[in-house]
Design a protein around this nucleic acid. Structure first.
Lengths: 246, 246
DNA sequence: ACCTGAACACCGTTCAAGT
DNA sequence: ACCTGAACACCGTTCAAGT
């Protein structure tokens, strides 16, 4: 069958011949809500101005009155998804490790929920309250861990970039179309088992254990490694300052 | 001025009216070379079948005889770039830390060289000799570090995913169109400085130190953290097995 | 002021026709 | 057997015209 063709207009089954939209039915909010619905169903690929217009019952070009271009629409959508997903949910405890874990988990879950947008979410700066809040929260935890000045800001980047990039890559795998994903996935479980043991002895010896790239344990393990390393680094610094401490 | 319009045909200034291509001038190799040239200049956005056909002096639809679709072409291109970039360059030393660093650096540099493809490179499995070689090399280093079985394969994933995802995100930032990138970049240096100190005390206190997301130090620091944590983990395990060793 | 229609310059892809 | 032309079903975006 053809792709997403419905014969005739009828934006949402509203009758045979839609005429003209009443004045002021369109607005940023209305359009963003429709965009979220659309993205939730068919992902980023489904979010075209034509489909969006159909969803909202208007003409594609009408959207340009409310958004300068598609990039503006996507950034705005990302931000509204983010604030709704973990808007005010971060609350500091007295355990900085647990707090950093909490940021990581929130972002990870959020990306997995909207895999199609994870890439944009990870790389773009939206400079809005939710983002500010995350940065503030993370910096606070890092300072409580014992980092100061340049060190705190460097590790803010290391930690932030690690969790955002890992989560967005994992999400990106989910966003691949199923046949492609399955083909890649199967390669790790079949083709790698058949490699000649003399050229690839390590692979041959461990082939039964090979996890897939998208293994969910990887994210958690990476976070724990980061926290351990941070701990060790701070402890070493403290030991250097007061060598008698033990 | 208009985009990339040249009036009339003339594929590469070869005269006013190109006729028909001689038989068998087209081949996978010829097309891939043209694709690499194209991607090297204008990035992934410039790699369209129409542009590729122009570059190679043929009709867009002729390419379908040699590649089933665009995905096949892109995967093939990625693999040939990879093998040329660090084909047989990995040689084990007696220092597993240095060997892991070496893999990381090779991949990092390669992604930065082809930022437009970094995303595909990081997420897709090409199952070809270069990839096999990387996996074998990394597994070997991890085993020399003291990891066995399930642990070795888990950390293969953690290490591999961290470096690939970090490097591809960093590369992705380079691939953003310049105005967008500059806008995002400036936000960290200007807008974050102006946030009210009572709502965001940590940010206000550290605003002068805030590095950008694309800071090149982040990658190296993340690798060192990973290596430290791995060291610590192996040492702890060894201590548990022979507690008298000290 | 807000919404629409026609139009432009692109995409990837199919398939029958030319050499 | 290999290359081409015409055509299809899409994209994002502009701009003059309708209400």
């Amino acid at each position: 069958m053809s792709t997403t063709r419905s014969d005739g207009p009828g934006p949402t089954g509203s009758g045979p011949a839609r005429r003209r939209l009443p004045r002021d039915t369109l607005s940023r909010e209305v359009i963003l809500e429709a965009a979220e619905r659309l993205a939730g169903r068919g992902g980023l690929a489904a979010l075209t101005f034509q489909a969006l217009a159909r969803e909202v019952g208007a003409h594609p070009t009408s959207l340009y009155r409310h958004f300068r271009d598609k990039d503006e629409l996507v950034l705005e959508l990302i931000d509204s998804l983010r604030s709704r997903s973990y808007g005010g949910k971060l609350e500091a405890t007295d355990d900085w490790r647990e707090d950093l874990r909490s940021v990581a988990r929130h972002i990870h879950q959020h990306y997995l929920r909207y895999p199609q947008f994870a890439l944009e979410m990870a790389a773009r700066t939206t400079r809005r309250p939710t983002e500010f809040g995350n940065v503030e929260f993370t910096l606070d935890a890092l300072q409580r861990a014992g980092l100061e000045g340049q060190e705190a800001t460097l590790y803010l980047r290391v930690f932030g970039n690690v969790i955002r990039s890992l989560a967005s890559m994992e999400a990106g795998l989910l966003a691949l179309d199923p046949p492609t994903r399955d083909r890649d996935e199967l390669a790790w479980q079949l083709e790698y088992r058949r490699l000649p043991a003399q050229t690839y002895p390590r692979i041959a010896g461990l082939a039964d254990n090979l996890a897939s790239i998208g293994d969910p344990r990887v994210f958690d393990e990476a976070i724990e490694l980061f926290l351990d390393a941070l701990d060790a680094r701070v402890a070493r610094k403290a030991a250097r300052c007061q060598p008698a401490g033990g």
